[in-house]
Amino acid sequence: MSRIAGHFRKLAEERRTALIPYVVAGDPGQAYTVPLMHRLVENGADILELGVPFSDPMAEGPVIQLAHERALANGTSLSAALAMVREFRATDTTTPVLLMGYANPVMRMGYAAFADAAAAAGLDALLTVDIPPEEVEGINSELQRVAMDNIFLVAPTTPEERIARIAGRASGFIYYVSLKGVTGAGHLDTAEVANRVDAIRRHSPLPVAVGFGIKDAASARAVAQAADGVVVGSALVHAMAETIENGGEPTAAIEAAAALLGDIRKGIDSAR
């Protein structure tokens, strides 16, 4: 399998919760994504989640929708996102990278062509928001062919028997969506998250990462007490967008995201 399983094993030995930042490839500009990825690693990221922009990002809240629009406006495609992963790999061969996106661009490229290109670029995993287990067969066999993980979502509405079914197909880690809603929503219930993470653990030995609605050190710390990994997306994307709206350069936006991630890292580490 990919770098992910080994990485989580190492983190578990160090009693460290994985911090997984999400940023959109090509936001604020194509040239800034790779430098941003490196800065995030320097500020405490354990795994990087790179969003592939899509014209119709149905699972995203307004902050990430706008990031997708900005990235599309500067021409960021799935191929461009893979090129960024390849460039990142030239100097970082250890940090796992996963792409998060929607079915259509991957389907348009072709599952086999995607798997080959992604493997060549050094990608570790793919998460497609709108390919549930019922529809996964075609792409899963291609990802398995190149030893790439397919990251599945479990939601607050997923019944236990379905969790078992998802666990049977998952590899790498399982991504628990912490709330009913879109990315960046603000009604996180950490006690409920802990219950649900326990339910997932009853069905799968895989690490569980939690995302959606985690926006600062405090919420990250609360979630870290229950989970193996914490995903932070909208807060970072917002920090960058705000910097640019206020007249800052893209390099300043990168530093704003890196600084916020550093704070969140400290918050998580204080939970253990």
Binding site: D130, V177, K180
Partner: peptide
């Protein structure tokens, strides 16, 4: 088919 996010599958 059913190409939606996991949250909607039960509904």
């Amino acid at each position: 088919g059913k190409f939606v996010s996991e949250t909607l599958m039960s509904a």
